[in-house]
Design a protein around this nucleic acid. Structure first.
Lengths: 348, 348
DNA sequence: TTTATATTTTTAATCGATTAAATTATGAAT
DNA sequence: ATTCATAATTTAATCGATTAAAAATATAAA
């Protein structure tokens, strides 16, 4: 292992000088500089980032906690995160909480120990205990470490957030169904405890209310998208004789499961039952019929969160921000039969 | 920032004792142990992994370099890597080389500086310069750091590899087309310089030879799957009047692009032109017709590479291994019309 | 030449842990 | 009570960098 000391000896200078050449923070005469660079080259020296990190208290690493990195949604978020991080010269340390708050806290603890320069956290805080849980998280983190919360607003006072307005966009897409003439919209929600699931459901309800339609609890089903499947939910609804003229799923994967069930039952989409999702993950354009959905700027969410994190790393005094990103309605054949849609073959 | 020293003071012992309690490597009396643990708890102390890493020369981190983490294929590899790493208590540091060898070397350099405990490298070495390039890589890495090569065999002497036998499986699936009666198989290859693309093409050629079919260069097209698209390749082939009764693409994404082009030209799949891919990424089961392909155990490749890496970290003297994983032929409607296939809705 | 000033280089402390070696405490055996 | 073996604890060196502050050297002005 070549140490800075070895380089210094070879170049006939002190380690301090070598350090100065490398960091470029202090003056070094051209002669000496050249000698040092030569020595570095000849010896194939690489700065030991651990040692540097110990002294500078910087690791150039951003810790990332996502509910489940293996899911398409978060994979796209990760893309954005990695792009931004790599462009800004940061490494990232990724972890999955698997939607387990205890694990999430354990990971925060780990990241603290790793002395990452900042943390990007897509928390799985429970909607019903939002305040307490958020407080727990805030307490775990020294105020010195910048945190950016993805998807949730945890604490306006201390934590920046990068979010989308789930409620608004969910109501927009419900409105689309209503505009298409749908009156009985079956809603498939993910776990009710997740904040964005809750918000999406609220959006659906608001849209119904705004249009004078009745909200029926029979039409609202919850499923655990980790184990349960929307496919089964719809099969069951169909066999139970429940009547509906549309299905709104809280995410695309559920919508596609629903479509599978409807197709097997020979129900025409969208004529008999229209289907819509949320997220716009790419399979939505691949299945037949393609899924009408809300495009969530996942990549950009990742990108923005890194940029905000770095901003806070470089300017400790800056106040936390709330960054709200725009979504977009994507109409496809699952709700409008007349459209021409084509497969999205890019970026996967 | 709470330091071990602070904990020691609070507990009324020396830092060495605190360290002993934490690492559990040396005897500490129950009384003292309790006092120390209390202090740690009260002060919310977290071991500084940087400081520990400096002393122990271990970071508990495995560096990972993949050609493009954002691609579905590598995302699955990453799943396996993260699962294994997290189960074994390792962190990972992920990077994308973007199929650029210079960038790949830069990243190796970065990882060396980070003092990761091991490296998993899915190299983009050029088939035509395999030996030299591999040597370059070997030279960059001190023999002390365990390296596992994914998809390629770089250097049997010093680097373990986790691979699949692309050539064999490619010939298997070509054979399937031939068994179906196809005689003129249009082949869409990725960049010829990539080792596994080269191998897949070889498999195709071997299968043709074995069956007494002629290898025609007109039927072999290369496209850069980063910028070019198989969709365009097939459109062009069709408009040029090229005759073929099947398309073999070197990966599923290209196969799906080909299917799109064929469908637009109103060509019946598989009756007029059968299509096959390679990899078995999940969109292959979602599109219509679903794509016949070779299932590559991507997750397991990631998993095994981490396990092999950790094995070498713990046993420096152990010889490098070559781990060959099995693939599987997956028949679907793009080559066999009579099959019943259903959407794969799991794990994305 | 001398002195003052600016520039370059070195010395030495430091970051926060681990660990070999030294020291002290504990307890059993005589 | 003394001795000896063992267990528990502390001292102090160390990992490999950064960085004030001190020292050495170069440059300019008188």
């Amino acid at each position: 292992m070549v140490r800075m000391k070895d380089v210094a000896e070879r170049a006939g200078v002190s380690v301090a000088t070598v350090s100065n050449v490398i960091t470029g923070k202090r003056n070094v005469s051209p002669k000496v500089q050249k000698a040092v660079l030569n020595a570095i080259d000849e010896m194939d020296y690489h700065v030991n980032m651990i040692a540097r990190g110990l002294k500078t208290q910087r690791t150039n690493t951003i810790g990332v906690i996502l509910p489940d990195v293996t899911k398409l949604f978060f994979n796209d978020v990760l893309k954005g995160i990695m792009n931004a991080a790599s462009a800004e010269g940061y490494s990232i340390s990724i972890h999955s909480s698997n939607y387990d708050f205890e694990e999430e806290k354990r990971l925060i603890s780990t990241l603290r120990g790793m002395h990452v320069d900042g943390i990007i956290l897509d928390s799985c805080v429970d909607y019903n205990h939002l305040h307490e849980w958020a407080e727990e998280i805030v307490h775990m983190l020294p105020s010195s470490i910048p945190v950016v919360s993805l998807e949730n607003v945890l604490d306006e006072e201390s934590i920046s957030s990068v979010i989308i307005d789930c409620r608004y966009w969910s109501s927009q897409i419900t409105q689309h169904l209503i505009d298409q003439g749908c009156k009985k919209i079956f809603y498939i929600s993910g776990p009710a405890s997740l904040v964005h699931e809750h918000e999406r459901l609220l959006g659906y309800k608001h849209a119904l209310e705004n249009n004078g339609l009745q909200i029926s609890d029979d039409l609202i089903t919850y499923h655990d998208f980790l184990s349960g499947s929307a496919y089964e939910v719809v099969r069951q609804a169909l066999s139970s004789g429940l009547e509906f003229d549309a299905i709104q799923a809280s995410n695309d994967q559920a919508a596609i499961g629903a479509i599978k069930a409807l197709k097997e039952a020979n129900i025409k989409i969208p004529e008999e039952v229209a289907v819509i999702g949320f997220d716009d993950v790419f399979p939505s354009s691949l299945v037949t019929p393609a899924v009408t959905t809300i495009h969530v700027p996942r990549c950009d969410m990742g990108y923005q969160s890194v940029m905000e994190c770095i901003r806070k790393i470089n300017d400790e005094t800056s106040a936390p921000r709330r960054i709200v990103l725009k979504c977009k309605t994507i109409l496809r054949n699952s709700s409008v039969s007349s459209l021409e849609t084509s497969w999205d073959l890019d970026n996967w």
